[in-house]
Design a protein around this nucleic acid. Structure first.
Lengths: 227, 227
DNA sequence: CGGCAATTTGAAGGCAGTCAATTAAAGTGG
DNA sequence: CCACTTTAATTGACTGCCTTCAAATTGCCG
């Protein structure tokens, strides 16, 4: 793992996939170092940022899994997205409209938004990085909105397939998040989620493992369920 | 209305809200002119871009209303978003994952994506403009995903409130889109949508007008329904 | 081993969907 | 301008999926 100092620079550099193309690597590195705070460690379910807080920072996940969600006055909660290492998010003006919380133990880097934008104004590689990350998240969000109109089996099948892709694992998926997290993300109750998982198990598409892990037994059938 | 030539430049300039801050206005204008095609006129329900097409262009709505949607093999359709004049959208790599269609007669400007990105690399104002538009759309998309988990009355109330805000009208809203469009956007059937509108009417929150127009009679109660 | 939280399973109810019919509105041709 | 056709929108009756409420089970951590 790289040193914390310059970590964000390394992420940008790796992401833009073009070593040595910064006009002045030292200067860029220095600028990015100056605006980064952390990474900060968080425990499971810690609140990283709260809806309503002044939106001064953009977040970069360095380790673990993070969720962004909204909690309503009646206690209902919706999870908007899960973020994995390398994900950059948290664009708001004025105040956060969503809370950010640690799903697992997590390491998160805080990037001062204004400073980040002014670095982007000088360094087109950084600007490009921000745009790429944001369009990625937009695509994800749109797919998420589409997903919520489907039946429970499709939602769960899609969730499991996407997650195993994002985690880069084949076969056994060690679910980082609770049933409640998944249910709130998929717009289901935990009961319906649990029943749906049971159905997929009985159909032979997946198997339950110890801990929270699941094994995909019939990937093709799972993908077919996604429609 | 401004001349078509340099239209995109004028949009960027107006949006960045800082006249005279481009280092070389003439050069920037020339660069932006070179990458823009159109605006092109479309009739109601015309397909502007089709899911699966090579994603070479970004779209800027100049007039009318546009929708982006996905149609599934079984014929189901979901509307992801409606775009109004000034909205910029269509980020995909390789191929569009959504179709873009005219809701009303519409004028759309086509911006070559690669050219746009390379202009953005040289002009930080343009890069900032792209990032702002994209984060705006991301916020909208996330709110949309949240909306679909709510009851029908809340969805419709939120839709009407948001639309009247975006259109900048008070009282009477001349709905630009069909019931089917709205239903597909809200994740409801047209029957449920129709019944819900009737309910809101009977509650005295809205009134039906000739054409497709609606009048908001009790804005506070409508906002209360949004939760 | 005991206690608490998370998950699973069961039974009953509600909200939106489906199927079908009616009404209203928009487009066409005489 | 009106009769006719076609499409969009509304209304009704019934079904089904997911939710709600409740209980049992499992798993985790002291």
């Amino acid at each position: 793992m790289p040193s914390d100092r310059g970590l964000f620079f390394n992420v940008v550099k790796a992401s833009t996939n073009c070593s040595g193309t910064f006009v002045d690597e030292g200067r860029v590195k220095h600028a990015l170092c100056a605006l980064q705070r952390g990474p900060v460690r968080f425990q499971r379910n810690d609140v990283i940022a709260c809806q309503g807080d002044s939106a001064d920072y953009i977040f970069l996940v360095v380790g673990g899994v993070v969720r962004s969600c909204r909690t309503f006055i009646n206690g209902d909660r919706n999870v908007i997205a899960f973020y994995l290492p390398g994900d950059l998010f948290g664009w708001s003006d004025q105040r956060y409209s969503l809370s950010v919380e640690a799903v697992t133990h997590a390491m998160v880097m805080f990037l001062k938004r204004d400073a980040l934008i002014s670095v982007a104004a000088r360094e087109s590689k950084v600007a490009r990085f921000l745009l790429d990350k944001t369009t990625d998240e937009l695509r994800r969000s749109q797919e998420h909105a589409l997903l919520i109109n489907k039946g429970a089996k499709c939602r769960v099948a899609t969730f499991l397939t996407d997650l195993s892709n994002r985690l880069g694992v084949r076969g056994a998926i060690d679910l980082p998040m609770s049933r409640q997290d998944i249910a709130d993300y998929l717009g289901l109750t935990i009961e319906t989620l649990s029943r749906t998982i049971t159905q997929l198990e009985q159909l032979g598409l997946i198997a339950r493992n110890p801990q929270r892990a699941l094994t995909i037994r019939n990937n093709d059938a799972l993908i077919r369920l996604m429609g």
